[in-house]
Design a protein around this nucleic acid. Structure first.
Lengths: 347, 347
DNA sequence: TTGTAAGCGTTATCAA
DNA sequence: TTGATAACGCTTACAA
């Protein structure tokens, strides 16, 4: 249609209201903030007009003026992962209550993208950020600290005094999982780890190593594999290893993976390779995403308190923003082993 | 520590750079935009200084001036749902490429919250929004249209000429699913629908009804149930119905649900009630979230093209923002039946 | 080639 | 009780 031309979005401003109300725009500003200095009758009139015109204040102007944007930034590594989803769901709910808005960015486990995302947050004047950084030693962390950008780190604990973090203890998680496998009789455990540049992968490896040490087992380098964190990668890795080998020849009886998604990939591969879980291969995941309970067989995993992570991190951030607290908070949350049916007990 | 006091975030502006460079701030502005009118040497010097100082432009100021904020808003109903997650994952990826940022809000199937979220988007000056509205006839839609806010509706098709939408045909989805059940021999099918105020629920009901009509089956009102869209609600509803009744007495042999999440809730309840799927109860879901393939037994469902929904919607929006297209796009995407193992064939 | 000035929509100070 | 005015950081004519 010719005449459905898009008109430029006409912004309604306090000036427009002022014209209609026959007062100056600064009176309108005051009236809208319910300043008692403004005559009650004009105040009411102005409010009425504002409502009629569907006036909504321009937050850009406001933010420019006050340095209060009422937005906070969230920088995560995989928007699609149910793990992260659970975290920012609670964040979103709390933000809704507090009239904050969330700027959400996905870094895709890419440090350049992460850097870009941090800059985006700064440029947009967010009042604070929650970030799950890829690496604890990357210059990206410095960027945040130098700028004095209020931040809560999750899923990591960068080694700086003046930061906040909420960290689910990955080291302990790996330890618990590995210990459970060892106690079930497994000696050769494939560690299906996350990407090598990811700090979490190193914490996880450490926990795995500690468990081996405790039970005087050798760490076999060939059983530590770094992988992208997706179902597809998990499947890919296992298929790669098992290709052209007999079940008895793959050199391990169990898989411990950094994420449930990865573990589900192992399930996929196992099916394709006609390996039975847990008869031929035991599997333990990490995160306890909702799906892990429903796969066949139900996945033994380590529960990561995602809701609490989200809740604590946003609470800490909002407190700091409000200025209620100047102290830096460092929280470590303990994960919990959830035994289901993907681990075989070896006699 | 006393002296870890938080300094106010000092913003670095073009004025600071100007001082250091010994030029006027407007020269800096031009230099940073690589305006060839500025002497190449000063341009370089200014760029160097800007980099050294970690200058990042204030997007609020920029936005206020240009009416280009490089942000787009996404308003969804459940951030945690794997269904929505898949949609905004692709949106996020494309936005990353195009240097746009996403403002994400969760309306929680609440129309008041939805209204607030729309206003938030307007106030923040987003260049456009993608919204999955709760109801196609709510005043919230008018709010968007009146304001001439560029928008793409997903998961719905409001009846206005001058809007864009990308709609996965829920009516057809329900029809396909119901037809499959009927052809498998089921005559009494419980429709586990979404919330009554949700437009999708009505489209879904229509498809279900059509299938019944086609096969000359009666629509039994008692078999249409509106429910919140979560695993818990799905389980709750089924348990409610089956309480104190024998399997042969519940009055239906199959369940068709508006979402896979709801269907998984049915799985949970079935387990608790010692009902076998599909022997005692057949189940068909909708969405085809990743988990539906992994549940036991694998869930028969109707695939909703989430990636395409996300991709098309953001492409349409960005085109309209760029002004490349003034035409309103109305896309309807066809869902596809995915047969797995949760439907029993009745002789 | 560089600088001045007005303006985007607010807030806040001060004057009327 | 109300109104001018400057300022936030940036863009963009226009002037020098």
């Amino acid at each position: 249609m010719k005449n459905t031309k898009q008109y430029p979005r006409k912004e309604i401003t306090i000036k427009n209201i002022a014209e209609l109300a026959g007062v100056s725009f600064s009176t309108v500003a005051k009236a809208l903030r319910n300043d008692p200095l403004v005559n009650i009758k004009t105040r009411e009139r102005i409010h009425r007009i504002a409502k009629e015109m569907n006036y909504y204040p321009n937050l850009l102007a406001k933010g420019l003026k006050n340095k209060k944007t009422k937005t906070i930034g969230i920088i995560l590594n995989d928007l699609q992962s149910p793990f992260y989803a659970e975290i920012y769901k609670v964040i979103g709910d709390i933000l809704n209550e507090r009239d904050y808005t969330m700027l959400l960015c996905d870094s895709n486990y890419d440090q350049n993208l992460e850097r870009k995302n941090i800059i985006t947050m700064i440029s947009n004047g967010v009042e604070g950020i929650i970030i799950s950084p890829i690496n604890e030693n990357s210059p990206n962390i410095n960027l945040i600290i130098e700028r004095n950008l209020k931040a809560v780190f999750i899923d990591s604990f960068p080694n700086f005094p003046n930061i906040n973090y909420v960290y689910a203890n990955h080291e302990k998680a790996a330890f618990l999982a590995a210990e459970h496998l060892i106690q079930s009789g497994h000696k050769d455990i494939l560690l299906l780890n996350g990407p090598e540049e990811l700090s979490s992968s190193h914490h996880f490896l450490r926990g795995y190593t500690q468990a081996l040490e405790k039970y005087e087992l050798f760490l076999r380098e060939d059983l530590v594999i770094f992988s992208h964190l997706s179902i597809e990668s998990g499947a890919e890795v296992l298929k790669q290893i098992c290709r052209n080998r007999k079940i008895t020849d793959i050199g391990f009886t169990a898989v411990l993976s950094l994420s449930d998604l990865l573990a589900i990939g192992v399930y996929d591969a196992a099916k394709e390779l006609s390996l039975r879980i847990p008869e031929d291969l035991s599997v333990v995941g990490y995160d306890n995403i909702f799906a892990s309970k429903y796969v066949c067989p139900p996945l033994t995993t380590v529960h990561q308190p995602k809701t609490r992570t989200g809740m604590y991190s946003i609470q800490i951030l909002l407190e700091q923003i409000a200025g209620d607290s100047k102290e830096f908070k460092k929280m470590v949350i303990d994960p919990i082993l959830v035994k289901r049916s993907s681990v075989r007990i070896v006699k």
